[in-house]
């Protein structure tokens, strides 16, 4: 990481630890320096990370942080201690995650992440397809299902859904069309849908 910081001037790096056993920490890079960082990771003789095994997206929703503080207030001339709750909205973001391996040195993975500014309009990250050719279709899939726009991608189109499709189905706030049809063994969410669409005793 220090060598990466030295190689790419002005890079903003953040190391995110991973609590589960055996999983390495991941490296969050700023999209502006992502291509330079990827070139370094690929070409550095100590790393030689020449293989992208996986590109995926993560959707982090907006979170509301509640903070409760006890404040002294004067109400009707009497000083009382009142609990005050302040809500702070933490904007969500989309994340593109790359798992890099080295075929030459037989080591990995190094997990590289890029984050977008928010989930609505600033959804751009840098495409690593010019650096790793194998990322092309996987970045297209992430664009299709999460709506992350990869700047610099040679052919950014939808991969799995049709072109006319709106919305991005893998986002957490995706609302699917209400087209439930009965199946014999509904359970959980599907059971709720069955109850809504086929009320007991209703004549079709």
């Amino acid at each position: 990481m220090t060598r990466l910081a030295a190689a790419v001037p002005g890079i903003q790096l953040e190391l995110v630890p991973n609590g589960s056993p055996g999983n390495p920490a991941s490296l969050v890079v700023d999209p502006a320096q992502a291509v330079a960082a990827a070139v370094f990771l690929r070409d550095d003789p100590g790393l030689l990370l020449d293989h992208v095994s996986n590109v995926t997206g993560v959707d982090w929703l907006d979170t509301v942080l509640k903070e409760t503080t006890r404040v002294k207030q004067v109400i009707d001339g009497v000083e009382r201690e009142v609990e005050q709750t302040t809500e702070r909205r933490k904007p969500g973001y989309l994340e593109a995650v790359y798992h890099l391996f080295s075929m030459a040195r037989k080591q990995g993975p190094v997990v590289l992440r890029q984050r977008t500014a928010n989930r609505v309009d600033k959804v751009h990250v840098a495409s690593l397809t010019p650096v790793f050719r194998g990322a092309e279709f996987q970045e297209r899939e992430v664009f299709d299902l999460f709506g992350i726009v990869f700047d610099g991608h040679p052919d950014l189109r939808r991969l799995l859904m049709w072109d006319e499709f709106q919305d991005h189905p893998m986002r957490k706030d995706y609302v699917e069309p209400d087209d439930y049809e009965y199946e014999p063994t509904p359970h959980d969410e599907v059971l709720d849908k069955a109850r809504r669409h086929y009320p007991v005793g209703a004549t079709p």
Binding site: Y182, A194, V200, A202, P204
Partner: peptide, 18 residues
């Protein structure tokens, strides 16, 4: 359309349990 009505119609299902 989501289905071709000449070929297929949704089955008429009446649920009898909760």
């Amino acid at each position: 359309p989501p289905h071709n009505p000449e070929v297929w119609q949704p089955a008429a299902v009446v649920r009898d349990e909760a």
